[in-house]
Design a protein around this nucleic acid. Structure first.
Lengths: 185, 185
DNA sequence: CGCTTCATGTAAAAAGTTACATGATTCA
DNA sequence: TGAATCATGTAACTTTTTACATGAAGCG
């Protein structure tokens, strides 16, 4: 389990409410760990019960009050313990790959349009990552020199960028392969 | 949900027992969809109940009997329906990325050994994929010309190879970054 | 005799998804 | 007035993981 740990990291980077965490899981931390607000609220409650985080009521003008969570010393040591555990092998779930192999028993050409749409999503994701990189790390407003946390965030983002570039190149290969299986290929 | 569909694809490629499917999910289909035997047996039961597959008792010499499953016409059309559904956006779960960002609040250098071990796992995976590619697609024993199913299997495998190469390059970047954060960097 | 492979499962717990629900404020 | 955003949750369901369980055959 790592949602708790992803939340710990996010709250250490900056304390925030469940709602704010849900936003962050749509971008930033969400680029490599997804979670919905329902999950987040449930886990926050458990983490508070375990003493990993504590909440502070924050009054806001023109907005409902929020509970701002911060990581306690206990939470920090829980994170540290988890960081020292061996990295679990990833469990792969690649739906598109299943579909491609399944296409052998259906119509391969019919998949092309879907793969093209999927490719566009990834192109947008890459554009978003690159914009974030310019904004936070390589642009004129980026901090120089970056601190350790920023360098680590940057290397993670570079991983996302490399993943998207690789994916786009592979999807071109897939589309090409599907085309060549068509009636005129 | 796609475990059912991954099983349909695998059984269409070749009928087999729950046990044999579990083996395939350790290699081949397992390179892009993981599942344990417990999951597989449960889903097979449901799929049989839904009439997607049917079982044939196969007696074996010197081994327990097995149930060999095959895809029914109903199963084939269920797969076809699923293939025509839009591809769901992937939900990312990248534990290592969380750990890297978490390292900012712990000891970044302590992560290096773990990342190096992780890197070795991926190097082995790449070697396995490349061996499979030579055996099935590019070596002297590979079928020429390949049929549609083989071409589709090959493009999926190329995706796996591209993923592992990208990952290895990124892990080198990670290790380098962690080193530079060390006391002498 | 003990280890590995073949073969099939059950049970409980943890995690994740989907649907439903409420209520305030801001902006067009 | 209606839609969007902020803010927080509950409930039901599905999926996944982990642990437990059994039994036969082959190998060294």
């Amino acid at each position: 389990m790592a949602l708790e740990h992803a939340i710990l990291v996010s709250l250490l980077e900056k304390p925030g409410s469940g709602y704010e965490l849900a936003r962050r899981f749509e971008r930033s931390i969400g680029y490599f760990w997804t979670a919905t607000h329902q999950q987040i609220y449930r886990v926050l409650k458990r983490m508070e019960g375990d003493g990993w985080i504590d909440a502070r009521e924050v009054e806001q003008q023109a907005r409902p009050d929020k509970k701002e969570y911060s990581v306690t010393a206990l939470g920090r040591s829980a994170l540290s313990a988890w960081l020292h555990e061996p990295i679990a092998p990833e469990s792969v779930r690649h739906e598109l790959a299943v579909k491609i192999r399944g296409a052998a028993f259906d119509d391969p050409v019919a998949l092309i349009r879907e793969v093209e749409r999927y490719r566009e999503e990834h192109a947008e994701r890459l554009a978003r990552y690159l914009a974030g990189e310019r904004r936070d790390f390589t642009g004129p407003d980026a901090p120089a020199p970056p601190d350790a946390g920023q360098q680590l965030q940057h290397v993670v983002l570079r991983g996302g960028i490399a993943y998207e570039r690789m994916t786009l190149a592979w999807l071109d290969d897939v589309i090409d392969t599907l085309h060549r299986l068509g009636p005129q290929g």
